[in-house]
Nucleic acid binder design. Structure first.
Lengths: 114, 114
DNA sequence: TTAGCGCATAATGATTTACTTATATAATAT
DNA sequence: ATATTATATAAGTAAATCATTATGCGCTAA
């Protein structure tokens, strides 16, 4: 089976981006569900600007997409990114984070419907 | 097929470590051959202390091993690390770097014999 | 024993990072 | 229109990062 390779320089950039617990967890969460900023704020217990800055970095790297839904902005995995196979195989090694979603729902804080 | 998972926090630490072009390239090179510090110095065109600091980080994380051979210290991949499967699948996506070894040999600068 | 080589460590400095608070923008609800 | 909610951006700051130069230590060879 062939594996798609990625330039070392580009890979290092992606790895640096994901070498942050918050962003890495975000991306793992986005593997299975979409999230809005305010949900991330609830989950990660940091300020809203901090979350905005994290998702912006993910977006600038082309790893996620944003779409407005009313007053919310929903973030989702960009599966068309040329580095998606790399990222996917990476987060495949991480434990599922759906329990965070369930915590949100238990608190009645789940926004997006997908 | 089952895949071994790795804690998110530990994964983020590894990714931050490899989110550096020099260290990432080193690790890819060590996938197929052992190297000593002076060879890395030649290849990466940075100071010897800079290289020492990079390999030390890789060693502290348990990703590489060192062994003294005369006046040289040879670094090799630690395939017994509990995160080796994660690291391996990651560098598997990177292009082979053996051309660097061949450049060394062409210049008569290859040290370690493995 | 002394000189030279390979490597590690210490000290320092410039840059980057990840947060914070304050404020601006955009959509919603009254 | 005005207030509220969700998000983005700006500005500032402490800490981490990655390089450098200077120096110490261990092995080899004369």
């Amino acid at each position: 089976m062939e594996i798609s390779t990625i330039e070392i320089e580009k890979a290092a950039t992606i790895l640096k981006l994901l070498g942050d617990k918050t962003r890495l967890t975000m991306l793992k969460m986005l593997e299975t569900h979409d999230y809005c900023v305010c949900e991330f704020v609830e989950i990660f217990k940091v300020s809203q600007p901090a979350i905005s800055q994290h998702v912006r970095k993910l977006k600038d790297a082309g790893l996620v997409r944003e779409m407005r839904r009313g007053q919310w902005i929903i973030y989702s995995m960009n599966k068309d990114s040329d580095v998606f196979p790399f990222v996917q195989s990476l987060i495949h090694h991480l434990p599922n984070q759906d329990f965070k979603l369930q915590e949100l729902e238990a608190q009645g804080l789940r926004i997006s419907c997908d």
